[in-house]
Design a protein around this nucleic acid. Structure first.
Length: 474
RNA sequence: UCCUCUUUAGCUCAGUUGGUUAGAGCACCUGACUGUUAAUCAGGGGGUCCUUGGUUCAAGUCCAAGAAGGGGAGCCA
């Protein structure tokens, strides 16, 4: 049999009058007395190719088995369509059934809820929506590698299994080969790990940043891109227990360099989607989120606001004075609640905001301390750090970044003040001890970027097989 | 983890003040139709009303507990 042509190529560059072979899954079949129409999709594009089959030429039993979801092979001639929905179609000469599809196929051709499809994560990939999301996901991953590669960054692989708890970023999943019913304990009841696989307590990583800094301070500029694990019992449309994170780390960068990179990076990814995923984005814009394309274009064409934390508090206090109500207080020193972030991004500036120079107390130990303390209401406030959080409409914090503290003494001081176990950090401190350098970096949750680019509402629907509390099927 | 909403056919949902045989659209099956576009038209089959307990002559409907799911919050990416 002739070689298969992908549907995307048939539709894009198929020659009318030529013989083609298409293989794929049936989206819908429409019958009439003499002619049958089949919409065939093979995943190469969101678009289907229409198959036209004269009933007289085909076995009745075979045609009965061609139902929504069945997998078939069609050989025929590519012709101009007589119908109005498509320009070309395949006039079938031969149809072979690869796999029939019984009526209990969970994906029907009419709309199901996202919650329903989540229960069938293994089959939902065959729907238009998840096909579009997964093609975009691939494109975003590719764009990320291309962006950094073209800038001379090195893709640096940090370990998934770790014995350090970076920044105390969250509850960790333990990794052990021990029999959990028979654990060795000391006289205080604490578990002894010396005969465990690694000889010490080990976990799945919550961030590759600290190891990333090791790479950056050798290779100059690196990025990581891999899975990350948090055992937090957080049940929201923006959290996963297993998610993918991108963490670039760059030497000799100051805060302005960092913010410029963050903005350029996000715009590059969004632009890539607009340029390379048009069909899928058009579909999502039509079916999922009517404002999607407009929002993506506006991000590409707008300049992000740079907003020091202290100025942000002033704006919020001014809003409160003018009668704006918030559930939580936002005095200088408080961490901003999402309602505050949303006010600034969605109501006040109406564009992405990079918030900077947070109070030291509400940020991680490795952030570089500002030389000057901020003045608020005429008074000098506590120390601030060079953190840069990129806040986006709808999804909130999409990037968390900072200039790293390069002073050995200041870093030790923070570690001591925060009671971070020193013995686990010795290798990290060596970056400051031996040839310390100014450097900066950020972390971006890949699925949060996916939420923004696809317009999907729930993070569980932008990753093929989501892991969340009480959910690890498939 | 907290607050809140939801759970009725394979799917999406309706179901009045508690009342006797629980409905619709889609899907499926049968039939009709010379070109459909999530085709259309006619007919048919299909129910542990989430679970347990309670109130009542009577519970899909009211009450309590539990389970699962959604939304919001916190934590964060």
């Amino acid at each position: 049999m002739q070689k298969r042509t992908k549907v995307v190529d048939i539709l894009k560059s198929g020659v009318v009058g030529s013989d083609v072979v298409a293989m794929g899954w049936v989206r819908t079949k429409r019958d009439s007395k003499t002619v049958v129409f089949i919409a065939l999709n093979d995943g190469s594009t969101i678009n289907n190719v229409q198959i036209v089959a004269d009933v007289a030429n085909f076995d009745e039993e075979l045609m009965k088995q061609i139902t929504t979801g069945a997998c078939i092979c069609v050989a025929g001639k590519l012709v101009e369509s007589q119908g109005s929905g498509q320009s070309v179609e395949i006039q079938a000469k031969e149809i072979k059934l690869f796999g029939d599809c019984p009526a209990d196929y969970p994906m029907q051709k009419k709309g199901q809820s996202m919650e329903y499809m989540r229960q069938y994560a293994h089959m939902r990939l065959r729907t238009n929506t998840f096909g579009a999301v997964m093609r975009i996901r691939h494109n975003m991953a590719f764009a990320i590698h291309k962006f950094f590669h073209d800038k001379g960054f090195f893709y640096f692989h940090t370990p998934l299994i770790t014995a350090s708890d970076c920044e105390g970023a969250g509850q960790m999943f333990q990794v052990t080969t021990k029999n959990l019913y028979d654990l060795k304990k000391d006289e205080k009841g604490s578990i002894i790990y010396d005969d465990d696989f690694f000889g010490k307590q080990a976990s799945l990583t919550v961030s590759g940043q600290l190891e990333g800094e090791l790479g950056a301070t050798a290779l100059g500029q690196i990025y990581t891109f891999g899975p990350t694990f948090r055992a937090e019992n957080s049940n929201t449309p923006r959290h996963l227990a297993e998610f993918w994170m991108i963490e670039p780390e760059i030497c000799f960068y100051d805060m302005d360099d960092l913010m410029a990179l963050e903005e350029e990076f996000i715009k590059y990814c969004v632009k890539w989607a607009l340029d390379n995923c048009q069909d899928d984005l058009n579909f999502l814009n039509k079916m999922i989120d009517k404002g999607l394309l407009e929002r993506l274009n506006s991000v590409v064409n707008t300049e992000f606001v740079h907003l020091p934390y202290t100025k942000g508090i002033e704006i919020l206090q001014e809003a409160i004075k003018n009668g704006r109500k918030f559930e939580f207080p936002c005095n200088w020193g408080d961490d901003l609640a999402s309602e505050h972030e949303r006010y600034l991004v969605e109501e006040y500036f109406k564009k992405p905001v990079i918030m900077t120079n947070y109070p030291k107390a509400i940020k991680a130990f490795y952030m570089k301390i500002d030389e000057k303390k901020p003045v608020y209401n005429g008074k000098e406030m506590a120390e601030t750090v060079q953190g840069t959080d990129v806040l986006f409409p709808q999804i909130g914090e999409i990037i968390g970044g900072s200039v790293r503290e390069e002073s050995y003494d200041k870093l030790i001081n923070e570690i001591n003040e925060r009671n971070i176990p020193m013995k686990d950090m010795w290798w990290y401190l060596d970056t400051r001890k031996f040839g310390s350098c100014p450097h900066a970096g950020f972390g971006l949750g890949f699925e949060r970027l996916m939420l923004f680019v696809t317009g999907m509402a729930n993070i569980r629907d932008v990753i093929p097989f989501p892991r969340t509390p009480k959910n690890a099927d498939f």
